[in-house]
Design a protein around this nucleic acid. Structure first.
Lengths: 243, 243
DNA sequence: GAGCGATCTTAACCTATGGCAATAACATGG
DNA sequence: CCATGTTATTGCCATAGGTTAAGATCGCTC
């Protein structure tokens, strides 16, 4: 992992500043937030459906996801979370979690007690708005995935997913010369796209064959952005990266 | 339509009290909220994707929905909204709408200027939490629909949808001896469930034949709640009706 | 009460995607 | 270097659900 040189709150500030603006005092208040930092291996559950957490999780490094199982054991992944995201921020207002949160890759995480979050928001109403806005964008992403799950075919769904991830990762500064970290297996992709692993494989290969993307070794490179956005009918408006 | 005897804010208070508790002052502040009431016919767009509304909509009577079209003209409905709901509350923090809102049936609506909402929330931080919580429950419902769209077959999806609507409408007092208003065409149902109208018809008839529901004339009656929840793998936890 | 539009229903046929199973390609640890 | 586990790939066949189109119903309106 990278050296712990960066304060854990930096990624959070960067994330918030990708969707809103912060005053120096607000940045300072966030930096002063008490956090417990911890390294977690890949594929670990952080909180489970039905839990009543007393703290929020902040992703500092690595990928996390939110998911739920069908009674028959089929999994749907609702969201992937990247550095700066708080996958269970909603636990602040929804006492018992209606889905699970887990790591996808090895992660460095920070845990923030609810009481500290509440204190921060009480003192800084504009931060309340910022975090609220963040959860609303979360919801906008859900809707966009719903549109895909309900009305787009497999290829379109995959293409738009790749578009979204590139756009989001770019917004928090994780793009390096056209390449973005995306440490997902095809099985995880399948659970997110509502497809079988076999069909994900077919579709990913199709996108590769069409020279739209390269996706290997946990990294995604867009070869043909115009082509990919066209294939995915992608319009980033729903990400509300207004800045 | 029913006589305008009830103040428009009453449904909003009832809705909020189904998910949180309010003090007398808070109820009063909501009642004092300036609203413009208006009747709207069925199938009218209220706001469209890309709009930048300066007001929020409150459903007083009737059904509204939120939706978006694919480039190829296929529609996905994200949510149905019932009396007490504010389908575009999110416009308070997301300047430009990423989806449209329209009426499903004829509706009585109230419009509240953003500035008045902001003023209310500034004065009553606990109401901020309540409305935030409401948008989070909104998100929880999206996730549940995603699980259905991605991982449940058509019959299960339909059954769980009917379970959800009954539960929600019951929570705001719209159930009358086992029957609930549900003025949706099968085409609208199809757009919500991510199916074709033909297949919705097949599945609805199946649920009727199994004597689980009656669904006609804009009303839904559950004949066999145990059977329906089983068919839909329905667990109302995600609705967070904790009260 | 004839005509019209919306909705629902049924049928016949078609296709995108799923399920299963075998194989390949790597990593990892001993 | 071998054994093992995970992930990716390929092929074959099965099926849920889509598509198209033709009625059937049921208000409405003129």
């Amino acid at each position: 992992m990278t050296p712990p040189s960066t304060a854990p709150s930096h990624v959070l500030i960067a994330k918030l500043e990708s969707i809103t603006d912060l005053t120096p005092e607000e940045r300072e208040a966030i930096t002063a937030l008490p956090m417990r930092v911890q390294e977690v291996l890949a594929d670990q559950d952080l909180v489970r459906e039905g839990d009543r957490p007393a703290q929020c999780t902040l992703v500092i490094e690595g990928f996390a996801c939110r998911f739920k199982f069908t009674d028959k054991g089929r999994r749907q992944i609702f969201a992937f979370h990247t550095p700066g995201d708080m996958p269970d921020l909603l636990s602040l207002h929804l006492k018992t979690l209606d889905h699970s949160v887990g790591t996808v890759s090895a992660c460095r995480l920070a845990f923030i007690q609810h009481e500290h979050m509440r204190e921060l928001l009480r003192r800084h109403p504009r931060l309340t708005d910022a975090f609220w806005r963040d959860t609303l964008i979360d919801g906008a992403i859900f809707r966009e995935w719903m549109l895909g799950l309900g009305r787009h075919d497999a290829r379109t769904r995959a293409a738009r997913f790749f578009c979204e991830m590139v756009t989001r990762l770019r917004a928090v500064g994780l793009e390096r010369d056209g390449t973005v970290p995306l440490p997902l297996t095809q099985a995880e992709l399948a659970d997110a796209l509502g497809l079988s692993t076999v069909h994900v494989n077919r579709v990913v290969q199709e996108l590769r064959r069409e020279r739209l993307i390269a996706f290997e070794d946990g990294a995604l490179t867009v070869i043909d952005w115009a082509g990919l956005t066209l294939a995915g009918e992608f319009d980033p408006a729903y990400l509300h990266l207004d800045r």
